[in-house]
Structure formats: C-alpha cells, structure tokens
C-alpha cells in the first residue's frame, strides 16, 4: 500500500500516513476552505489501510496549533474509525501533541479524549519549536 503524503499549506496541515511504519502524522494548522473535501483522501486511505489484514499497532501523532470547527468534526470521524479498528484488534495510540504554552490545544485535546472509547489517547506536551 502506498503512503499518503500531503504537503502543508498556510491553511492545511502536513499529512504523512506511512503504511510501512504504521505511523500517521498530522501537523500544522487546519482551516481548509472545505474540510470534508481536504480530508476525504485521508479518510479513504485510513479506511483502506484498516481493510488490510494486519493487527500490528498503529501510532497517530497529531500536532495542530490551530484548527477550525469543520476540522474538529473530521478529527472526530477519524477517531471513530481508529476506535473501531482498535475494537477489531489493531492497537491504536494517538498522541495529541501541544506546545506547553498552548492551553487551548491542551483543552481541546481533553475534549477529544473524552469522546474516545477504545484507543489510547495521550496528551503530550512539548517545549521547544519541534514540529
């Protein structure tokens, strides 16, 4: 299965979905004009990925400094897919990464965490300007 790589723009995050390492990375800012359209290939790719028969663990690293409400909705839907995959036997860990000074990103992470049923959802603080 081919990896999915989408380069970041001013209003859309960088997306790297690696089928080999089973590490997914979403980072940057997310307020695309049409969030459903922007994330459709991402959701399709993730659905296809979990259709392959493998139960090796998957790690998802998300670092979003700012995102709009439509992006929040898409993230909820992605977490739903991950939750289902986890229930079906593929362990999934989500690392919600936020800068130590970004209280808003932290609080939003807590809301997402509450919505999740199965997967391990870690809220991870970082200090320097690492991506």
């Amino acid at each position: 299965m081919e990896n999915l790589i989408i380069e970041a723009t001013k209003s859309a995050p960088s997306i790297i979905l690696n089928a080999e390492t089973r590490i997914f990375v979403i980072s940057g800012e997310s307020y695309p004009e049409n969030a459903a359209k922007f994330y459709k290939p991402v959701i399709d790719w993730i659905n296809n990925f979990f259709d392959q028969q493998s139960s090796e663990p998957v790690t998802v690293n998300i670092t979003l400094h700012y995102f709009n409400s439509s992006s929040s909705k898409v993230l909820m839907d992605i977490f739903d897919i991950l939750d289902t995959a986890h229930s079906n036997g593929t362990p999934v860990t989500v690392n919600w990464r936020h800068h130590a000074e970004n209280d808003t990103a932290f609080e939003c992470g807590e809301e997402f965490k509450e919505e999740i049923e199965q997967i391990d959802f870690n809220i991870v603080e970082f200090l320097d300007e690492e991506p």
Partner: peptide, 15 residues
C-alpha cells in the same frame, strides 16, 4: 460528538 464539538468551538472562540 456534537457536545464535544460545541465545547471545542467555545474553547477556541474564547482564545
């Protein structure tokens, strides 16, 4: 989902 989305939106608007 809706309840959490509204909460997230409130947090961001406050910011």
């Amino acid at each position: 989902q809706l309840r959490h989305l509204v909460k997230i939106s409130d947090i961001q608007q406050k910011e």
